[in-house]
Design a protein around this nucleic acid. Structure first.
Ligand SMILES: Nc1ccn([C@H]2C[C@H](O)[C@@H](COP(=O)(O)OP(=O)(O)OP(=O)(O)O)O2)c(=O)n1
Ligand SMILES: [Mg+2]
Length: 722
DNA sequence: ATCCTCCCCTAC
DNA sequence: TAAGGTAGGGGAGGAT
């Protein structure tokens, strides 16, 4: 009764090991050419990845809009009250499919989907994903993201067409050009989707008739791109987006104030943007299916269950309230590169080589946006011990996810330094190469931090007007420091240069990362970095017999280009002062703790070696006891915190249970779930880490229970799609 | 309180 | 055959 749908290996007495699975994946020549061990894998993968394209385009469009802010400014000479705001959401219908059909008019009345599968096979089993299907295909129940095989089961006549990324891009650019003409504020959401604020345009040029404006805008976009958009209109972002969904395809819909409640109440909670399958399930467990149900919960109840912010958002959304403003530009907070497809390794050299390439990619992206980072995070996906071959060809399958980060003392964009940390983090994981199914590098704490949060254009104008005590005030003529900040981070080259030239002594973050002090540092400068999370690392290390004490390691000095936090020096204002203080303090700490600092980039001794001893060789009760004792403080704290939530389930159910299901702490195959469950989440995670990283998987016993299938993990078909 | 790390979730 | 990326919001639990 709990048998999963997946048919792969239930009858098998043993789980296949990672080694077996990876070896079999890499056994045939075609796969060897198309996995992470192939020399040009990364480039080919990114070239063909639709999701990579979506993300890249999104970033590019946001940047483009930010650079074009001045275009909107002219229109925004007056402060607009939130009440006068008219938000419109514009979104192409079946975007990839529609663009693909432009040159295939003979297919226009057939069910069509965009995917990689050539469709030459007569078998209905392709695991290729459909990026976009037209509305005819949707009438069969096919949706975006579905596997071709599943889609063909629903509609055997489905026609597949290939990706044409350049065309999507070109159509999108034309689309945004048109929007820029009318928008007072414009937020790029994706390649085919944007938010615009057009209150002023509608009032002044369309006699206040928002729907007439929308009709004309849709017509213009259709004429220019030959593709259909749908539009949602309302007083805020939430309602505009939901209106678009209702309007699709080839339609528009205006949610006026007196219709809000009626519009919302009968819809399911997951039609709220931000409420996905997980949140919908958690709400469902509380008997909340519709938005009307959601409205019956108090703010307190929602916050107790979902946290202060998420609870408040749910409470407001259920009432059609959304205070977010359109974000014309917002500072980038992270840059990353990751791959979770085709990732298979036979040996550690291959892992390092791949990580090296990925790191080059991540640093290139960092430099492309002219930023520097202070923190690098390595993300690893490891095959769950019980996971068989993934249903998706060369997919990552069912995985446990892990991440580890390191914080530097300074901002940097030095490949050497970042790479060095990536490698160190990889070694800290110490995982078996054949289990790896995904790797990612994320660079955080970029030198864009403001301490002031995001600002929309209207926010900006409001504060400028308020400060000046006048209503009409061009943005760039006052609040010099703020202007300096905005433009220097996001603005175009010209305005940046103006600002920089006004303070010639300070180097810019855009001058190729070189300033006088850093030049001096370039040679013979040791790497100065610091593990902020030392406590955590130490607990892990101490619990494992093969770890050395930090003091025992051999320091390794790395010559790197190093800079002071000059970026903040040029910002001026309060936030940069406090940032400077922090930097000075950090620098001081570095001096005070030289040994510890060195240990961070120590070349580890024995802990890098493959672990021979494993926890499996200990009685499991000892493991539990040991961990429990090490974290006694933790446990008591946890008890305290759990008391707070005792009324509710103390933790989110399914995820944790799924993760622990892979564990067999006892070599007799018995696993004391009660004991494990009683442990704090943190400790559970650490136990898992120990087992995943330091236990030969062949010692793990087969798992008989599985609740979620892999496809549950990674696909989000509407319920009842099969 | 507020920060940090390590996650999970969501959206396209 | 197939190309399951990426950025941001935010929560849990620990440290300060
Ligand atoms: N799982 C998904 C969802 C979307 N996309 C791509 C293809 C889509 O065409 C494009 C835009 O996404 P939308 O959610 O707007 O979907 P469509 O435009 O295809 O359909 P519609 O907006 O009419 O629902 O993003 C994708 O590759 N994979
Ligand atoms: Mg669309």
């Amino acid at each position: 009764m709990f048998q999963p749908l997946s048919q792969t290996h239930e009858s098998s007495p043993h789980c296949q090991t990672g080694l077996e699975l990876t070896e079999s994946d890499l056994a045939n020549g075609w796969n060897r050419q198309n996995t992470s061990i192939a020399p040009d894998f990364l480039e080919r993968f990114y070239k063909n990845s639709r999701l990579h394209h979506l993300s890249t385009w999104r970033a590019e469009l946001k940047q483009m809009i930010a650079n074009n802010q001045s275009t909107f400014r002219e229109r925004r000479t007056k402060r607009t009250d939130d009440e006068d705001q008219i938000v419109m959401h514009v979104d192409f219908d079946a975007f990839f499919a529609s663009v693909g059909l432009l040159d295939r008019p003979h297919l226009i009345n057939r069910p069509v989907g965009v995917c990689h599968a050539k469709g030459t096979s007569t078998k209905i089993d392709s695991s290729s994903e459909i990026a976009s299907v037209n509305y005819i295909a949707r009438s069969y129940g096919i949706s975006n993201g579905m596997h071709v095989g599943d889609a063909q089961r629903l509609c055997p006549n489905l026609i597949t067409i290939p990706y044409e990324f350049e065309k999507y891009h070109a159509v999108s650019l034309r689309f945004y050009e048109i929007l820029i003409k009318y928008a007072t504020e414009l937020q790029a959401l994706s390649i085919d989707e944007a938010l615009i604020e057009v209150g002023r345009t509608v009032r002044e040029d369309y006699g206040g008739d928002a729907e007439e404006f929308a009709r004309q805008l849709r017509k213009e976009i259709k004429n220019e791109t030959r593709c259909d958009v749908s539009m949602g209109i309302s007083k805020n972002i939430l309602l505009a987006r939901m209106a678009t969904t209702y309007a699709k395809p080839r339609g528009q819909f205006y949610i006026k104030d007196d219709y809000i409640d009626e519009f919302l109440e009968n819809q399911n909670v997951d039609s709220l943007p931000g409420v996905g399958s997980s949140m919908a399930q958690r709400l469902g467990e509380k008997g909340v299916i519709t938005i009307a149900d959601l409205k019956n919960l108090t703010m307190g109840e929602l916050q107790a269950e979902f946290g202060p912010k998420a609870g408040k958002t749910l409470y407001n959304f259920a009432r059609g309230i959304d205070k977010r403003s359109i974000q014309v530009d917002s500072p980038r907070k992270s840059v990353s590169a990751e791959v979770a497809w085709g990732v298979r390794f036979e040996n550690d050299e291959q892992v390092e080589k791949f990580l090296h390439e990925l790191c080059e990619e991540a640093v290139k992206r960092l430099k492309d946006v002219k930023l520097k980072t202070k923190s690098v995070m390595l993300k690893i996906k490891l095959r769950k011990p019980e996971a068989g071959a993934p249903p998706k060809l060369l997919g990552c399958g069912d995985c446990d996810n892990f991440s580890k980060s390191k914080t530097f003392a300074y901002y940097t964009d030095s490949f050497e330094l970042i790479w060095n940390e990536c490698l160190a983090l990889l070694k800290q994981f110490g995982c078996s190469c054949v289990e790896i199914r995904g790797i990612g590098i994320q660079l955080q704490k970029l030198n864009t931090e403001t301490g002031k949060g995001h600002k929309s254009l209207s926010d900006y104008y409001k504060s400028a007007a308020d400060a000046e005590g006048r209503e009409e005030q061009p943005a760039d003529s006052n609040d010099q420091s703020q202007q300096c900040y905005d433009e220097s981070l996001i603005g175009d080259e010209e305005s940046r240069m103006d600002i920089i030239s006004s303070s010639p002594d300070l180097s810019s973050p855009f001058n190729n990362g070189v300033c006088e002090p850093s030049r001096n540092c370039e040679r013979n400068q040791e790497s100065i970095e610091r593990n902020v999370d030392e406590n955590r690392s130490h607990t892990l290390q101490q619990r494992h017999p093969s770890y050395s004490e930090p003091g025992n390691s051999v320091p390794m000095f790395v010559p790197v280009k190093m800079e002071f936090d000059d970026d903040n020096m040029m910002l001026g204002g309060e936030s940069s002062c406090s940032q400077m203080r922090n930097e000075s303090e950090m620098l001081k700490m570095e001096e005070d703790t030289e040994i510890e600092r060195n240990s961070i980039i120590d070349r580890p001794n024995e802990r890098d070696l493959p672990c021979q001893e494993t926890w499996n060789e200990l009685p499991h009760s000892r493991l539990i006891t040991a961990n429990y004792k090490v974290s006694k403080k933790t446990v008591s704290k946890n008890n305290r915190s759990r008391k707070n939530t005792l009324q509710k389930p103390p933790r989110r159910k399914s995820k944790i249970e799924d993760e622990s299901r892979g564990l067999n702490l006892d070599k007799n195959g018995e696993f004391d779930r009660d004991v494990f469950d009683a442990l704090p989440k943190e400790i559970q995670k650490e136990i898992m880490i120990e087992f995943r990283f330091h236990t030969p998987l062949r010692n793990l016993r087969p798992i008989h229970k599985k609740v979620k299938t892999e496809s549950d993990e990674l696909t989000k078909y509407p319920s009842g799609w099969l």
